[in-house]
Computed example of a mutant assay.
Amino acid sequence: MSQITTLALFRYGSWRRKLWALSQMGLASGRLKGTPGMRFFKLLGTGAEGFSTRPDWAVYGVLQVWDAAASAEAFFRDHPQFQRYVRHAEESLIIYMRPVKSKGHWNGVNPFEGNAAPEAGNSALAVITRATIHKKYLRTFWKNVPASQRPLQGIRGLIYTKGIGETPFVDMATFSLWTDADAMKAYAYGTKAHQEVIRKTRELGWYKEELFARFQPYKITGTWKDIPNLKTFRESLKGRDTNS
């Protein structure tokens, strides 16, 4: 069976539970290391309003790369740390994805084997972009972010987007979920604000390290109030779960 990637998101309600979730950014790593079948993982905080310098204290995530879908299913079913996340959370969501294309590095490695042929009949696309920003460019980079993100509002085909990352301000990433590749390309290559950020990135060399990865989501479990059409999108993926 081929490699898969999962992104689990958790939303916490009370401040007591939010503080618990924040504490897991330091405590959970040791509990997850050595999980059978897991070859890479990152504990993630998130940004408010999609992609922002302001933290979203209510939402946290776990990104994991698996040798096979069976290992992921066993983890979500049985692992004590995942059960802790679920018990404390107000709601949770798991997105299962096959890596399609990946270039660049995350902490010196490319964890995604981006060579899977997309399954026919499933046009959905997920994208992860990740970068470590040179400290001398932090102010300039974040000054340009609002303009580049503005075109995302109401854009066709965007199901969900969220800023994610391990370290605030410096190690940043984005996750986005789309109905199809054409919709993603229309934003990435068809909006002037986003193109301007790409140009500046190339000219100024903002990043010490960067990675861009595309995936085909094939299964979504759980609930997420920020995706009002989740049921419809989930239905569009049915019949594509061939790895589990």
Rank of each mutant, 00 (worst) to 15 (best):
E49I: 03
Q216Y: 03
I133P: 14
P118C: 02
A48T: 01
A213W: 02
S92E: 06
V100L: 13
P80K: 11
G30K: 09
K192V: 10
A183R: 08
W206S: 01
N243A: 15
K192F: 11
S71R: 12
K162C: 02
V62L: 09
R77P: 01
L125P: 08
P80I: 11
A68T: 07
G205M: 08
K231T: 14
T6M: 09
Q3M: 13
G163W: 04
P146C: 11
R16G: 15
W178M: 03
G222V: 00
F175C: 03
A69E: 13
T129Y: 04
R87Y: 13
R199L: 11
Q153M: 08
I220D: 12
A147R: 11
P55L: 13
R11W: 02
V62R: 02
T174M: 05
H79V: 04
L19P: 01
T201C: 11
D56L: 04
G239W: 04
R130I: 00
E73C: 06
A181T: 12
F10G: 04
K192Y: 09
R156F: 03
F215I: 02
K18M: 15
A58M: 09
P151E: 05
K18S: 11
G37M: 07
P151H: 00
A116V: 09
Y207P: 11
S52Q: 06
P146T: 04
W206T: 02
G108V: 02
N122V: 00
V197W: 04
R199W: 06
K208F: 01
S14V: 03
E235Q: 13
A183N: 13
P151M: 01
R234F: 01
L63D: 06
A124S: 15
A124D: 10
L44I: 05
Q195T: 12
T221L: 10
G222Y: 05
A181Q: 10
W224T: 01
L22K: 12
P80G: 08
G154K: 05
E166I: 05
L125W: 00
P55D: 08
E119M: 14
E91I: 02
A72S: 14
G30L: 10
A72V: 11
K18T: 10
Y187P: 09
A69Y: 06
R199D: 13
W57M: 11
K33W: 09
E49K: 11
I95A: 10
G50P: 06
N107V: 01
R39P: 05
I159R: 13
A117W: 04
F76I: 04
L9V: 03
Y189P: 01
P55I: 00
S148N: 10
H79A: 08
G163P: 02
A69R: 05
P228N: 11
L152T: 06
W66R: 06
F51E: 01
G121A: 07
G45H: 12
P217L: 00
A69F: 05
L43W: 04
W20H: 12
F82T: 06
G163C: 02
L93P: 01
L177Q: 03
T5N: 08
Q153Y: 06
R11S: 04
T129A: 07
L158T: 02
K238A: 09
P55Y: 04
Q3R: 07
P228C: 02
F175E: 03
H88Q: 15
Q149E: 14
D78L: 05
G13H: 15
R130M: 06
L204P: 08
G157T: 03
V197R: 12
N110R: 07
K18G: 12
F112W: 05
L125G: 06
A21G: 15
T140R: 14
A186L: 03
T201D: 08
F10L: 10
